[in-house]
């Protein structure tokens, strides 16, 4: 059904306009109101989104919510760090990772089976690359794409996220500004995931348990190299 021919839509809009004490808005009214969407601006940003040492703040906030972190010099240190993380958690040496040239060119240890593609049942660990880290709450921001399927963030027990220190921002608003700089105003990837610690529930007698449906472990590799 086209929008114009939908009687329910027309009735709902008319009731809203009636309640607002005006008829359908003029083009001029509409344009003025939607200026807010065309040129978005930040509301109040709290001081904790403007701290000087964003890296230290990010690590502290992420660890408060049960994520683990590790600082590495650069990309070449990733394979060994991943292998050790899996071994330490008692997970088999198998990894589902995003399809990225920076990862493909690395020297992966012979004993570690790496695969790309979407995540499937039975995947125990995954490796993704964050678009941004948000220091105010220790949040990693991931974007879905053909090379970075969203299932990697949710199906496996262990989620390992690479976060170049250069993309750590202070506040949520900074992350949105960087996303618009990359994609344009009003354009979104299919899914943007903000992830703040591993999955949890407290639905049974308020007992906090990690690993409800999503990953039980969230390990963040901070890279000094961009």
């Amino acid at each position: 059904m086209t929008a114009a021919a939908d009687p329910a839509r027309a009735a709902m809009l008319a009731r809203i306009q009636n309640a607002l004490g005006r008829g359908a808005p003029s083009e001029e009214q509409r344009r003025r109101v939607l200026q807010r969407c065309a040129a978005p601006s930040a509301n109040l940003i709290p001081a904790r989104g403007r701290e000087n040492d964003r890296i230290a703040q990010f690590i502290a906030e992420a660890e408060r919510v049960n994520a683990t972190t590790e600082r590495l010099a650069g990309w070449s240190a990733v394979p060994a760090a991943v292998a050790e993380t899996l071994a330490a958690a008692g997970l088999p040496p198998r990894l589902r990772m995003v399809d990225d040239a920076r990862l493909a060119s690395l020297a992966w240890p012979a004993g570690l089976a790496v695969a790309t593609g979407k995540s499937v049942d039975g995947d125990r660990a995954s490796l993704a690359i964050a678009f941004a880290g948000i220091a105010e709450t220790g949040t990693v921001m991931l974007l879905s794409s053909p090379s970075s399927p969203a299932t990697l963030n949710f199906l496996p027990e262990m989620h390992i996220v690479i976060l170049p220190e250069a993309v750590i921002v202070g506040a949520y608003e900074d992350a949105w500004a960087n996303l618009r700089a990359a994609l344009g105003v009003g354009v979104m990837p299919r899914v943007v995931n903000w992830i703040t610690g591993p999955s949890r529930t407290a639905d049974i007698e308020q007992t906090l348990l990690l690993g409800a449906h999503g990953p039980r472990l969230l390990h963040i590799l901070l890279l000094a190299e961009a």
Partner: peptide
């Protein structure tokens, strides 16, 4: 401070 998963779907 924030829920674990905040998801924006488009």
């Amino acid at each position: 401070e924030l829920s674990v998963y905040t998801t924006f779907t488009t």
